[in-house]
Amino acid sequence: MMDADNRPFAIRHYSPAQLREALKRMYLIRRFEEGAEDSYTRGMIHGTMHLSIGQEASAMATCMELTDDDKITSNHRGHGHCIAKGADVGRMFAEFFGKETGYCHGRGGSMHIADVKTGNLGANGIVGGGLPIAVGAALSAKRLGKSDVTVCFFGDGANNEGAFHESLNIASVWKLPVIFVCENNGYGMSTSTARSTAVPHIAQRAAAYAMPGTTVDGNDFSAVSEALHIAIARARAGDGPSLVENLTYRWRGHSKSDRNRYRTKEEIEAWMAKDPIARFRAELIAHGVLDEAGADAIASQAVADVQKGIEFAKASAAPDLSEVTRYVYAEAAL
């Protein structure tokens, strides 16, 4: 038997049931996004979408220790965050299909997907838009005497927005329970971090705001979960915010309009070889959390859940056209 101390953090720290559920949700994210992409190609989803395929470990490991009372703010590449926080893929597909049964009753779509009941305050179409909101949610928890924390997901592009700097500063000055999670996938649309960002690692910017900053391999589930474990504990203890940078990669383009003129095939293939789901699955098998057959069963279940979700979305009713102004204001106030 292996020396327990040498096992990866996640294996040591989480129960087999938790780890199996995490793998399930990572498969669910992948299959959900593939299903969304396929539905888009078939014309069942309009608009655009930003896929996070290749970034599943970052989303799931970040959310491992969050309860439904803990909040997240998400960004335009937010499907994974939503599923990792506990959303139902059927209601997500319904939203993408523009149906009344969707999480946002068909008013938000992919870019504003949210599930307030599981603490997901919503994806955001504005780069950096969620950062001050996350700090505000952390302020609420502190003022209301709750031990909840807020995790703020954003990409490398957001770290050059003023909102990033103002938010980190305020969170630090007021010692708020918020964890800033930068998913650094190397590109803000087409512009690389090397061409846009003055520091080699975004986590270095934490120093300017007197908070811990950590850069981890974002495709290593265990490394991400350990960094978040430390940051969440610090936030719950009232010691203030942290910045965690998950280095990862999106296999797909920025959005559906991306013609991939700024990345090489070799670069994409090299990252595809570092598939975070395959890596986590192998790790769980290596440490006896499950076997190949068990992992296959989990993967198959994700496929079935996604199929069921698409069927639910297809069968759902569209919003009534007379209700175009519904939800602009609270209904009781009118």
């Binding site: 001050p132 505000g136 949610a137 302020l139 500063n169 305020i170």
Partner: peptide, 20 residues
């Protein structure tokens, strides 16, 4: 607040969204 209108107003928005 610090002299951070975007951040400050956004913190107010986030706080309003979550119970204050």
């Amino acid at each position: 607040t610090p002299i951070s209108e975007l951040g400050g107003a956004g913190v107010a928005v986030g706080a309003a969204l979550t119970g204050l």
